[in-house]
Simulated scan of single mutants.
Amino acid sequence: RKIAIFVSYSGYGYQGMQRNKGCKTIEGDLEEALFKAGAIAESTFGDPRKIDWARAARTDKGVSAAGQVVSGRFFVDPPGFVERVNSHLPKQIRVLGFTRVTGTFSAKNLCDRRRYEYVLPVFALDPASHRVESPTIEAANPGDNLGEAITSEDVEEDTTSTTGTTTGRFTPTCTCTSSDLETGFTFGDEERAKLTKILQNYVGTRYFHNFTCRVKPEDPSTQRYITSYEAGEVFTIQGCKFVRCTVIGQSFMLHQIRKMIGLAVAVMRGDAPETIFERAFRRDTKIGVPMAPELGLFLDECLYTAYNQRFAGSHEEVSLKSFEKEIAEFKTEVIYPHIASTEAKDGVFARWLHGLTKERYPD
């Protein structure tokens, strides 16, 4: 029968959601668990087209999800489907439940909007935090007006050995709890309003060719519609203060959200003028945009408003309403602690901030 399966997972250690031969992916582990649980026949295992497999969103390497949706034709009987599948999955991947859907349902094609959350440490918004007086890494495109700022991946390759020992030119550390004491910076109502105002630059229909990669500016797929983008209140995980940045849009391109956050942080810290957004959306302009670390990003929910309205009388809603408690627990026990502990251990955001400099983004 055609069903929609609701899944939560931590993307740590995975090369993304989408199956990719030779790589460890969420879909790969989920498909194998479904097969072992008897939900996929041996004759169709390994060929997603035969079971009409579809995912709502293709999360990238290291990116987590609280409310991913996968649809397909699976055997759900006898009772105990969820428990059987979870028994074959690692703890960082959990099937929450499922609902029966129409025969033509597609988790990808019928998803109206997708909501993502980016959890940003407050110290990253402090203009005085993690400054480097003389940046040692050149812009990726020195001939451009704006060179690409260094990403967390670039610093990782240059400064950290496979054992985790820092060997590079600087040794940034996480200052989750020391920022307020050292600089006097606090993220209150005024700062929250300022960050939300910056994020509002993305709302509406825009051309995001500068917020992805390997796509030409004239490609029509770069036009995307963002419904809302807001900064939330400060909350604390393991002694570290964070702020949620929540974006809702129809669909997103590769690295788009991480680059939107990256540029917003650069503007918030005073490393780029707010007028940069006008240039970033111009199709005749190619600029470098900093890409925030993958660590803070996760898919929060996939929304099916039109489908639910159309089939309200014959099918159950495709929504997370029945799993709010389980999702809240997964965020609290898995996703948020991983973000905080990884930052405390590896200083991912701290390293990334060393690449944000005013020299890269002139007025």
Rank of each mutant, 00 (worst) to 15 (best):
L89I: 01
D271P: 02
R49Q: 10
G28A: 12
R49W: 10
K194A: 14
H88G: 08
I137N: 01
R58M: 09
E156W: 11
P337V: 05
T175W: 14
D77S: 05
S134Y: 15
Y225H: 13
A344N: 13
R258S: 00
E301V: 08
D158G: 05
D284P: 03
L199D: 00
D219P: 03
G80Q: 07
Y336W: 08
C176N: 04
R282C: 05
T44N: 12
Y307F: 06
G97I: 13
A272W: 00
L34Q: 04
A193L: 12
M253Q: 03
Q18D: 00
T236A: 08
M260D: 14
I335C: 09
A33W: 00
E233S: 11
T177D: 09
T25I: 06
A264F: 04
M260A: 09
F6W: 07
R283M: 08
G239C: 03
L299V: 14
L353E: 12
T186Y: 03
R100C: 10
R114Q: 11
T102M: 02
A107P: 04
A4W: 01
V267R: 05
F98E: 06
R192M: 11
E148H: 08
S8A: 13
V289N: 01
V69S: 06
R131H: 11
H255W: 07
S71N: 10
F187P: 07
K197H: 07
H315G: 07
R100V: 15
K321I: 09
S106A: 03
T104Q: 04
F45Y: 15
S341K: 13
I93D: 02
G103R: 01
S134W: 15
A193Y: 06
E190C: 01
A312G: 11
R192K: 15
P172E: 12
V132D: 09
P78E: 08
C213P: 00
K61D: 00
H354P: 00
D300T: 03
I26H: 08
A312Q: 14
T222N: 13
Q250V: 02
